[in-house]
Structure formats: structure tokens, C-alpha cells
């Protein structure tokens, strides 16, 4: 603003009542317009819905299809080492669930494709002492565990596709554990080893005081 000459008659033509109504309507219109633009732009930029990233690895592990192995070992009768092709060749299931992070955000109706944990367990044959399972990340820092009973619940799977496309590096390529009835930190990304054990190994966050059984409390 600079010092323009003023025109005092500006805006003084309407009657006071009309002025009030006019200004109120325009003010509300402006507010509504601003809110609409804001809501639209947040949707456009995808800042609101969808995934947020959590990782404690030094850097996001890189998946190399040539060298990657999913090792299934520990207290089992027939240990397994699967390459990416072999993992994808196992009988696949599709599962749709809401993803809940312990932080509070959620992604509704996530479509996972992968191998049921139960099918994998049948392949390797857990020994009678095997009562817990630890899931290790490629980066070597993160891991988490479930009891064998929890891991055998319906819907627990080693997922390699997310919403119809292979997992991206950020989302945990090439595979991650999906435990839809617990918070997301129970499902390590960049999964490379499934270890059957007799005692529960505390996961990364559990060692730091977080809840071991991170059941989601929900009305449905």
C-alpha cells in the first residue's frame, strides 16, 4: 500500500443494513471458498490420506532380486531359503484390512497379496519346542516377534504386493509381515528372516518399553 488519494465515498453508497448483510455474506463466502480450496489441495497433494514412513535403520535397505533370500529357520524340521521368485511362487492369498499405526494414523482398506504365515509354517514344520517367531529386517536393526499362536491367526501373512503392485523400497520391499490385528510396528518391513524360537525375543521397540502384544482395540 502506498499513499493513494482516498475516495471517502467508496463503499458508502449502500444503506447500513444492506452493507451489513452484504459484508457478512461475502465474508462467509470467502471463508467457505478458502476452506474448499484448502481441502481440495490437501487431497490433491496426498498429504492427508495414506502412509507415513517409520524406520530406525541406518538407511532404507535396498532389495536386490539377485541376492535376496527369505530364510525360514530356527526350531523347524525343514529350514527353507527362498529367493524372491520362489517366494512369489508359493500359494498366494489376498487380504484387505485397515492399517493402524500406533501413532494414530490409519490407512483404510489396504490390499495385501502374499503368503499366509500358516502355509509357510506348514512347509517348514515347527518343532514341538517352537512357541515364538521372530521376524528380522534386512537392515539388521529392526525386528519384532509374535507367539506362534498369534502368528497362526487368520490374516497374518508375508506380503509382497501392496494395492496390486510390488512393495516399494519405502514400504518395505520385497516383503513385510502383516499382522492386521496389531499396530504396524509389529510388522517388520524389508523382511529377510523368519526365526522359530522357544522363548520370545523382544523386538526393537519392546526392548525400549513398548507393549509386546500390540492388539488393536476396535469396535469392529
Amino acid at each position: 500500500m502506498t499513499g493513494e488519494p482516498r475516495r471517502p465515498d467508496e463503499g458508502e453508497r449502500a444503506t447500513p443494513r444492506a452493507r451489513r448483510l452484504l459484508s457478512r455474506a461475502r465474508f462467509l463466502g470467502l471463508l467457505a471458498g478458502g476452506a474448499a480450496v484448502g481441502a481440495l489441495s490437501t487431497r490433491v497433494f496426498g498429504l492427508v490420506d495414506g502412509w507415513r514412513e517409520n524406520t530406525v535403520e541406518e538407511s532404507r535397505p535396498v532389495f536386490d532380486p539377485g541376492t535376496y533370500r527369505l530364510t525360514v529357520d530356527g526350531l523347524v524340521a525343514r529350514p527353507l531359503s527362498l529367493d524372491y521368485e520362489a517366494l512369489r511362487a508359493l500359494p498366494a492369498v489376498r487380504q484387505v484390512s485397515d492399517f493402524h499405526c500406533v501413532e494414530g494414523w490409519m490407512v483404510p482398506d489396504v490390499r495385501w497379496d502374499g503368503v499366509l504365515f500358516q502355509s509357510l509354517a506348514e512347509l517348514v514344520g515347527p518343532l514341538p519346542d517352537a512357541r515364538y517367531v521372530t521376524f528380522h529386517s534386512l537392515g539388521g536393526v529392526y525386528r519384532d516377534s509374535l507367539s506362534l499362536t498369534q502368528a497362526r491367526l487368520p490374516g497374518v501373512l508375508i506380503a509382497y504386493d501392496l494395492d496390486g503392485a510390488p512393495l516399494s523400497r519405502v514400504r518395505g520391499a520385497p516383503a513385510r509381515l502383516v499382522m492386521p490385528r496389531m499396530f504396524g510396528y509389529k510388522g517388520p518391513k524389508w523382511l529377510t528372516r523368519v526365526e522359530f524360537r522357544d522363548r520370545q525375543d523382544l523386538g526393537y521397540w519392546q526392548q525400549r518399553g513398548w507393549r509386546v502384544d500390540a492388539w488393536i482395540r476396535s469396535s469392529d
Binding site: 492427508v48 501413532e103 494414530g104 488393536i216
Partner: peptide, 15 residues
Amino acid sequence: FDVDLVGAVFRWHTV
């Protein structure tokens, strides 16, 4: 709070 409520509230907080 129910997780679905928390999820919705989280979204509004972000918006």
C-alpha cells in the same frame, strides 16, 4: 479412544 476415531481425528489434525 477407538482406533477408527483416532484415525479420523489424526486425519483432521493433519488437514
